[in-house]
Design a binder for these strands. Structure first.
Lengths: 226, 226
DNA sequence: GCCACCGTAGTACCGGGGTACCACGGCCCT
DNA sequence: AGGGCCGTGGTACCCCGGTACTACGGTGGC
């Protein structure tokens, strides 16, 4: 029997997870936490096999909560779930000691098998992230830029060369039409920070406003037309 | 017995909704749609009492799907669910003919009672939005626009169907990143005229701002990436 | 040990974008 | 002759986006 703790700030999301897990006869939900602090506290108390951890939560976020749970040396494993497959989240999550990283977009079956994998000590990463993750770790030692992007992967456009990783992430979501407020909320940032990022992106890419940036994101294939 | 169709692009979210609804003995889930087009098709086929509609979906979004469902004259009611309580979404959604507008952040009970209200013909709006909506709509009546839209030119995408030729022209240059002032000077128009056009385009396409319109222009291939 | 860069965050300000509302002439119907 | 839609134009108003600063902790390079 695999015991699970659900940590997510959205009640409805928690409900969905709980129903899904309890429909399986080899899983039990020990409890639900609405924020990172609760997650840490309840883990120390209940010792679940797996914590299903959302990243974006008020107060203590999922990354920091993961870090603290792992630091206790408890055998509890953390499986991180996010809405967006932003690389930086994956890096941060795994760096914090998470055993897995899945996107909420996944099929229920994937989630279940992910939990089972993590419970038995395996690690699991969303397919869409695996390659990029490997790439990132491959050139973590040398600073040399990894081979000039094979066909199939988004090719690096010179216009984006001067952007930092973070800025490229922000540009991606600008390209998806997110407002500054949305970016701030979903990425757990202050709006002033978002504005700083956006301003630098516009300056570096020579775009006069975010609309030009959206167009740039499409033209560089940073964002694909749907 | 209230019959419900769930339209959401996230499988896990759909699962949560389904479980929640089917735990009630006065509700049945007729089916699940993963995008707007599916939602429209399945509604025409299954005639549910209520469609639980997410706004953000690939391809045809929730607003446009709502518009089409309402346009059929069917007695199916649409209840829109979003993650963020952005006024613009609410406006666009209600303008498209939705009977309700709730935030996913809500308690399960609120969602259930919302569905019941909508099914019996009542309208329901998230508490956090109600006042602002009333203020905004106190003086405006719903426009049931069938729109003749004779297709003199080959219409590339159904989402643009309700636009007039002129509006499609304006949308094209919006997609190229022109500002209102630029459009005015280059097209020999007054800026107020441009604003009128832009406003109508946003309303008809359910875009909350010109950035969404730019994205729409790319997605519908009205503007090609360079 | 120091410095440059990055990511974060703040304040203050202004202009453009978007909305609401109104108006009018020219069409094309019936 | 009227009715509808379309394209045009106007005014008033508010809010978000963008700019221009400043600032500070962490990390990595030299």
């Amino acid at each position: 029997m695999t015991t699970v703790l659900i940590a997510d700030d959205q009640p409805l999301q928690r409900f969905g997870f709980r129903m899904l897990l309890e429909s399986q006869d080899d899983m039990t939900v020990l409890g639900e936490a609405a924020n990172g602090a609760e997650a840490v506290r309840m883990t120390a108390e209940l010792h679940p096999d797996v914590v299903l951890m959302d990243i974006r939560m008020p107060g203590l976020d999922g990354i920091e909560a993961t870090r603290r749970i792992v630091a206790t040396g408890d055998r509890t494993r953390v499986l991180i779930l996010t809405t967006f497959d932003l690389d930086e989240y994956a890096y941060a999550g795994l760096r914090a000691g998470a055993s897995g990283f899945l996107i909420k977009d996944a099929q229920p079956e994937e989630l279940l098998s992910g939990i089972r994998s993590v419970a038995t000590g395996d690690a699991v990463v969303a397919p869409s992230l695996t390659r990029r993750l490997l790439d990132a770790y491959a050139h973590r030692l040398p600073t040399t830029t990894p081979a000039p992007a094979r066909s199939g992967t988004p090719l690096p456009d010179p216009r984006l060369a001067s952007l930092t990783d973070r800025e490229r992430e922000i540009l991606t979501v600008i390209g998806k039409g997110w407002t500054n407020t949305e970016i701030a909320t979903r990425l757990h940032l202050a709006e002033s920070t978002v504005k700083t990022h956006v301003g630098r992106i516009l300056a570096k890419t020579g775009s006069r406003d975010r609309i030009q940036a959206v167009i740039l994101a499409y033209d560089t294939r940073l964002v694909e037309p749907s």
